[in-house]
């Protein structure tokens, strides 16, 4: 067996063991489960930061700043002159480092500056995001209540559109808490939104079930096919 196959085999064997360890939780919480659970958290917390440094900070920020993107040709000339403006990246870098003052009781206000700045940027992006997303949503909600297809009245389409518009309005009305009194028409209509919401939640539940079961299927497939075969090959070798 070459080294590549050995590593792949080890990967499947350990993967199956890890899966069984997690599934052992179904019987009872146990040390085997807790060990692998902690191992997972450790790996997950290290992976993200490393990839941010590797795939963003280094190639997009540090390399241009240090001039490492400038190529020196064999005759000593350079592909482009060094751009000192890249040094301006030091400003957001230093500013971003203020996050770490969160640990200092005395200087934690510095961390709040950068948190505030980030919140401000997210806020502005969210404003633009809302209009870009909600515009077509609102436009497509204005559906014709009487639909003609090839010159003939389509009862089904008309019913669907009417139901769509009614559901939308009734559910929107259900969530109006700021005004409207119990005696008003708006107040009287509010309970009608509930059953429609329940239909939506039912669809949501049905879909959620599918998502969760899909994960289970994938794991069982891995254990039954890959892991059992890997264990078989090891036992066979032994």
């Amino acid at each position: 067996m070459d080294s590549s196959s050995a590593w792949s085999l080890a990967s499947v064997l350990v993967g199956g063991l890890a899966t069984l360890a997690i599934f052992s939780f179904l019987i009872k919480e146990n040390a085997f489960y807790r060990f692998f659970e902690h191992l997972f958290i450790g790996i997950a917390s290290g992976l993200g930061p490393m990839l941010i440094v590797r795939d963003f900070l280094w190639p997009n920020i540090i390399e241009p700043m240090l001039g490492l993107t400038v190529v020196t040709y064999p005759d000593g000339t350079q592909s482009e002159p060094y751009e000192p403006l890249y040094l301006l990246y030091l400003i957001p870098m230093v500013f971003g480092c203020l996050y770490y003052f969160i640990y200092s009781q005395r200087y934690s206000w510095l961390a709040k500056l950068v948190i505030g700045f980030t919140l401000g940027a997210s806020g502005a992006l969210a404003i633009r995001g809302f209009f870009a997303e909600a515009g077509p949503q609102i436009a497509s909600s204005f559906k014709p209540l009487i639909v003609f297809i090839d010159g003939n009245l389509s009862l089904m389409e008309s019913f669907n559109n009417a139901l769509f518009v009614a559901t939308l309005l009734l559910v929107l009305n259900y969530f109006f808490f700021t005004f409207g009194k119990e005696g008003s028409l708006q107040g009287k209509m509010a309970p009608l939104g509930r059953p429609l919401l329940m239909v939506c939640f039912g669809a949501f539940f049905g879909s959620t079930v599918m998502a969760r079961l899909a994960l289970l299927v994938e794991r069982v497939q891995f254990v039954v096919h890959d892991w059992v075969a890997a264990v078989g090959s090891v036992v066979g070798l032994g």
Binding site: A10, S11, V12, V14, G15, G16, A18, T19, A21, I22, F23, F25, L26, F36, E37, L39, F40, I43, A44, L47, R212, L213, A214, L215, L216, V217, E218, R219, F222
Partner: peptide, 16 residues
């Protein structure tokens, strides 16, 4: 592949 992927999938598969 051997740990992170498998453990992540297994954790969420418990919900199934």
């Amino acid at each position: 592949d051997g740990l992170f992927n498998q453990l992540g999938s297994a954790m969420f598969a418990l919900l199934g």
